[in-house]
């Protein structure tokens, strides 16, 4: 009986910790469809790095600080765009509260955009030239050297 009480207490504590008490500060992410995304890319005035992420994706958390640093260094020359895939608005907003990624993020719930762009898995990163041409797709967590090299490629084109 005592063991049961301990288990129930623990479950109650876990439930309390995981309650929806925290309200996200980041505003809701704008939804995007393929046509809007293609128009966005066609209107680019500088190269772009498009990162696909989701709040449930552990590797995306590992990658976020690197994207933050890259944006701080290259944000004036490279457009950074986030695509949140197969996620909830709440989860996405909490993710952005946790990792300060100060660039535009779109909500691609159905994965319409990334299905068109190709590649596999989350995270993945696309590199676009200033004319909107997709230059490189990187599947999986991107490391610092690869990200810096691909950004340098975009800037030297």
């Amino acid at each position: 009986m005592r063991r049961m009480a301990v288990v129930v207490s623990l479950l109650a504590a876990v439930a309390a910790c995981s309650s929806n008490a925290v309200e996200p500060q980041t505003p809701a992410l704008p939804e995007i469809d393929l046509a809007t995304f293609q128009q966005t890319m066609a209107d680019l005035e500088r190269p772009a790095v498009v990162n696909v992420w989701a709040s449930w994706c552990l590797p995306c958390r590992a990658e976020a600080p690197l994207l933050q640093a890259a944006h701080a260094e290259y944000g004036d020359r490279i457009e950074f765009i986030g695509l949140d895939f197969n996620d909830s608005q709440r989860g996405a907003r909490l993710f952005l509260d946790e990792f300060d990624l100060p660039f535009i993020h779109y909500f691609d719930q159905a994965g319409e955009v990334i299905a068109d762009l190709g590649g596999f898995g989350v995270p993945r990163t696309y590199f676009f030239a200033a004319d909107g041409e997709l230059v490189k797709t990187h599947n999986g967590v991107i490391d610092e050297q690869t990200l810096a090299l691909q950004i340098d490629e975009l800037l030297n084109r």
Binding site: L58, P59, R61, A62, E63, A64, P65, L66, G140, V141, D143, E144
Partner: peptide, 22 residues
């Protein structure tokens, strides 16, 4: 690297295996 990124390794133990994450 996980601690420097402000990630709690106790609540996110899977992060420790992501060597490619830095």
């Amino acid at each position: 690297a996980v601690l420097a990124a402000g990630i709690n390794p106790i609540t996110n133990p899977g992060q420790l295996l992501l060597i490619r994450g830095g």
